[in-house]
Design a protein around this nucleic acid. Structure first.
Length: 740
RNA sequence: GGGCAAUUAGCUCAGUGGUAGAGCGCUGCCUUCACACGGCAGAGGCCGCAGGUUCGAAACCUGCAUUGCCCACCA
């Protein structure tokens, strides 16, 4: 194989080695040489005969980073683990594809740009209008994309940039509209008035998974609606009681049995209410008075209860979290202000029986931190429990043309082992999530994202790929949940809905590697979409890694000021040191800690690799042609090398990257450098020729094999050293594609 | 309220039935021609607690404690 010339790697080769590895200068040069070689693209691996049919293929998508900012340690660990898998597969001669892309991250990106716009110009998005504002967001996204892609390259990630995708580009938009249309036609997407999670801060709905429960202290008030109402109720939000349409008690609660079924007209703080007493087994007779004021429009629980009992729904709070009913002193007031007014009225009327402090869980929006206000709204949903006919299925246990639900599909592929989730404990969480899954609200009242492919005219509705030809149709102003488009990622990136060669070759992908945090958001929904739209699994193995924390074990975040910038660390210590320090000590699915000290420690390892290699190269006498006479110790050393290689490969195949990395570290430093090299010194200087030949052969052999083992973990320095070593027949000029 | 995980040397963590390990840190010696971002030597742990299984347990089982995380509609 002679490709050194046009690969440009010769330029960075020298006959001997510099006294240190200049990572700042050499890493970017090496990355360029890799890119120029074209070997990140599997087509070229096949063309040049590097990928062997018998070795099979390996495909994986990169979890697309959000175009909201810069690379952080979370990305760094993703890139490192996935690059290890990718490089390992490539060196095994597999047709290897690792596909990059980025995510438009609808709410997150829009919120960020709105913040900047307000800070810089004091304007809101409405001041600009939809079109102008979107231009601004797109500009921001493009800049951010550029930064992230450059930083991704610095990490050494061997991604096939020729296939790069974006969740909001034309091709992906086509996939999104296709998916939406198909789901609508199958009755799996519906539009309905339902109580949804409303984020008053972002002014949009959010899905159940975007709701975060946080504990806080609150006051629990016990009172009666009016003097002649028989039952006292307890609440932390008296203002919502203007929307009550029932009081619920436990069916076997003797205190209240006689009232069940009765209807009362009451005047509550000036608002006329009609309250029906109902019995529901979800009521805890022990809590408060054992009676719950049911507010169907402003509580998820109460809403579900109202559906069971056929209760009317009365909205009293609007999108700005202000009251829509009540007298002058209440209407249009913020909920907290209205609460005080009502409490004042309760005291005056002598209806307030008790006030106590409790700790309660409140719902907040994941992105904005705003307190979620449940509201009835007309929105689009995905029905996960409706039966539909699946045309074609390669899922074990689900026949083509059979009737299934999305939940069944999601559950089946993990239950039957077609998809393995590692570590296994996350499978349990996955099933639990599916069991409690409700309709997925997919419409968002924001501008940045895939516009919903639905058009309205008077009372007519048109759901299709494109707008109707005739005039007067208005497109739905809402956009789709960002996870709708990213859930198509494993196949939309390969050309779906077109039946492309890539789709046939690389789907299902082999591995989906990501942080356990987004198991529900993303992984589960990819399974949903792939099984539904393609009738096949999106990936065979889900490998989940933990979060990277700081020295104190705190989550790294900008606001805490404890985040370590991976790019700073690369500048200081090199990408190889950053990579291996993120791997060692990070068991699958467990959080790990990182610090500059740790990275510096592993930088020392790169120096050790460099110096040991320098020694082997400098003491190597190429003119020595004598047949080597191996000693028993030489054979033992070579045997140990083979054992180590096998164990390392086994660990990688088992997704135990931390074990593999630690083993190579131990082997290279404490076996090869400390023992084998030290023991060879005398022989190299004064031994007989045959012994010298044996000694230098063993050293060169172990060095080369060690570099191969190390390459997936520390690609830069190993590639650099490989380029300086004498090559034997059949050996590639580029370590990246050398057989291991 | 339900579930999951962790608890091993000062710190960070490996170690899934057979005489306690690594890195960092610490102590002492060594600047010898690969490397002081180094070498050699060394100190340091009744493996959270209590029971049990076993010839044998840090590992398996039961209970407890502490910490962390996830989920959940106690108003």
């Amino acid at each position: 194989m002679d490709m050194a010339g046009d690969l440009g790697i010769m330029k960075i080769m020298k006959l001997d080695m510099d006294s240190r590895f200049d990572h700042q200068k050499l890493e970017p040069e090496i990355y360029k040489a890799w890119e120029k070689s074209g070997f990140f693209n599997p087509d070229n691996l096949v063309k040049k005969g590097i990928a062997k049919k018998s070795a099979g293929r390996f495909s994986m998508v990169l979890p697309p980073p959000n175009v909201t900012g810069v690379l952080h340690m979370g990305h760094a660990i993703v890139l490192t683990i996935e690059d290890i898998m990718t490089r390992f597969a490539r060196m095994q001669g597999k047709k290897t594809l690792w596909l990059p892309g980025s995510d438009h991250a609808a709410i997150a990106t829009q919120a960020k740009v709105e913040k900047i716009l307000y800070k810089e110009k004091g304007q809101s998005r409405h001041d600009l209008g939809r079109e102008e504002f979107l231009k601004l967001v797109e500009k921001f996204a493009a800049d951010s994309h550029k930064t992230i892609v450059n930083q991704t390259r610095r990490m050494g990630a061997s991604l096939d940039w020729s296939r790069e995708a974006y969740t909001l580009d034309d091709q992906r938009n086509f996939a999104v509209r296709t998916a939406f249309k198909r789901m609508y036609d199958d009755g799996l997407i519906f539009r309905k008035d339902r109580v949804v999670n409303w984020d008053p801060k972002a002014q949009t709905t959010i899905s159940d998974d975007e709701v975060v429960h946080t504990e806080r202290k609150a006051l629990l008030y016990t009172f009666k609606y009016s003097k002649d109402f028989p039952i006292a109720i307890a609440t932390t939000r008296p203002e919502t009681k203007l929307g009550d349409t029932a009081v619920a008690v436990h069916p076997s609660d003797k205190r209240y049995k006689k009232y069940v079924g009765k209807v009362y007209d009451v005047n509550f703080a000036g608002e006329k209410l009609q309250i029906k007493i109902i019995a529901d087994k979800d009521i805890d007779p022990e809590f408060g008075t054992g009676a719950l004021g049911v507010t169907p429009a402003h509580s998820m629980v109460d809403y579900e209860m109202s559906l069971r009992h056929n209760l009317p729904l009365k909205q009293v709070i609007d999108e700005r979290a202000r009251m829509t009913v009540g007298g002058e002193d209440i209407k249009d007031k913020k909920t907290i202000e209205a609460r005080e007014v009502i409490l004042e009225w309760l005291r005056k009327e002598n209806l307030l029986e008790k006030t106590e402090e409790i700790t309660q869980n409140i719902s907040t929006a994941e992105r904005t931190g705003g307190v979620v206000e449940p509201l009835p709204k007309l929105q689009w949903f995905v029905d996960v429990e409706k039966k539909f006919k699946i045309p074609k299925s390669s899922i074990r246990g689900i026949k083509s043309e059979s009737d299934v639900t999305l939940k069944e599909l999601m559950r089946t592929v993990v239950k039957n082992g077609q998809i393995k989730i590692l570590p296994k404990r996350f499978e349990k969480e996955y099933f639990r999530w599916i069991d409690s899954l409700r309709p997925w609200c997919i419409s968002r009242q924001i501008w940045f994202g895939h516009r919903i492919p639905v058009w309205y005219k008077e009372n007519k509705m048109h759901v299709d790929m494109d707008a109707p030809k005739e005039k007067g149709w208005e497109q739905d102003p809402d956009t789709l949940d960002t996870w709708f488009s990213s859930s198509l990622w494993t196949f939309s990136t390969l050309g779906w809905p077109k039946q492309t060669k890539d789709l046939k070759e690389y789907h299902p992908t082999d591995v989906l590697e990501t942080a356990y945090e987004i198991l529900f958001f993303w992984v589960a929904r990819m399974i949903l979409m792939s099984t539904y739209l393609l009738g096949e699994i999106p990936f065979r193995t889900v490998y989940l890694h933990g979060l990277v924390r700081d020295e104190q074990g705190k989550k790294m975040s900008k606001s805490l000021g404890n985040s370590i910038d991976p790019v700073d660390m690369i500048e200081l210590y090199g990408a190889d040191a950053v990579r291996i320090s993120l791997i060692i000590g990070a068991a699958p699915g467990s959080d790990s800690k990182t610090s500059e000290d740790k990275i510096r420690g592993y930088r020392n390892f790169t120096t050790k690799i460099w110096n040991a290699s320098r020694f082997v190269l400098m003491s190597y006498d190429a003119s020595l042609k004598t047949k080597p006479a191996y000693t028993a110790a030489d054979k033992r050393n070579l045997k140990k090398l083979e054992d180590t290689k096998k164990r390392v490969a086994g660990y990688i195949e088992d997704f135990k990257f931390h074990r593999a990395a630690e083993l190579i570290y131990q082997y290279f430093w404490h076996t090869f450098a400390d023992k084998v090299i030290e023991q060879s010194k005398d022989r190299l200087r004064s031994g007989k020729e045959a012994d010298r030949a044996a000694a230098q052969d063993v050293l060169m052999k172990i060095l080369k094999e060690s570099l191969k083992m190390l390459h997936p973990f520390m690609p830069y320095i190993t590639e650099s050293i490989w380029g300086k070593l004498p090559r034997e027949k059949g050996e590639s000029d580029m370590l990246m594609v050398e057989k291991c």
